[in-house]
Design a binder for these strands. Structure first.
Lengths: 110, 110
DNA sequence: GGACTCCATAACATCCTTGTTATGGATGGC
DNA sequence: GCCATCCATAACAAGGATGTTATGGAGTCC
């Protein structure tokens, strides 16, 4: 039932860098090329390419090739595994009904 | 609204190591001494002490001192911030109603 | 074919992380 | 006072992470 620990290692490590989280947030808006992902980041293109390798290793990103367009695509399933682990601690958060509670409750909404 | 990026760096980095996740899971069952936390782990006591320093730096653990008993206590609030970030991707998980959906929905239950 | 763009990889430097062993401080029991 | 236990810290080694510049491959356009 519990996710593969090594997988969680890779996912949490991937999320531990702000540039990589920025990449994931950008990919949540749709696939993008490496060039597009690198543009807003204050690092060189090879650095972004290696961040993508880390994300790919965590199963969070897949890189395709369609002609000259090589899109990076988000695969959020490993994020779900990470969330499963974290949600196990929800009883230790503040118990008041607040923004996150509302957000979580949306899953149950129509 | 969004959590401090540097805080998220520290939290996700803290979660990226299986020993530290094991420590958090243990502390979810109640406070414990460093000795108790180190016992089931295959590393030395100083290694555990430094894992605790990492967790403390992420705001996930506080170390007290009551006489000769120095308890480590879980503070799960930073985990909530991490979950907030992750839940932003829930639309990209499999959409079928399943175990995690049920788990998240519990937050809204009486 | 030639030039251009997009991207990966190599080679390198630097800092961080994780582990070890050794050691000493603080506290409690005798 | 003296010893034992619990724990932090120092000092060190080894490997990983992150960045750079340089370079070359693959595909497109003229």
């Amino acid at each position: 039932m519990v996710a593969d620990p090594a997988r969680l290692d890779a996912v949490f490590a991937a999320l531990a860098h702000p540039h990589r989280r920025a990449i994931l947030e950008r990919l949540a808006g749709g696939e993008a090329s490496v060039h597009e992902l690198a543009a807003p980041l204050p690092v060189s293109q090879p650095a972004v390419s290696r961040h993508l390798s880390v994300l790919e290793g965590a199963g969070l990103v897949t890189r395709g090739q369609r002609g000259t367009y090589r899109p990076c695509t988000l695969d959020a399933h490993p994020l779900r595994e990470a969330t499963e682990w974290l949600v196990g601690f929800r009883d230790f958060w503040a118990s008041s009904y607040d923004a996150l509670d509302a957000l979580l409750a949306e899953t149950d909404a129509p």
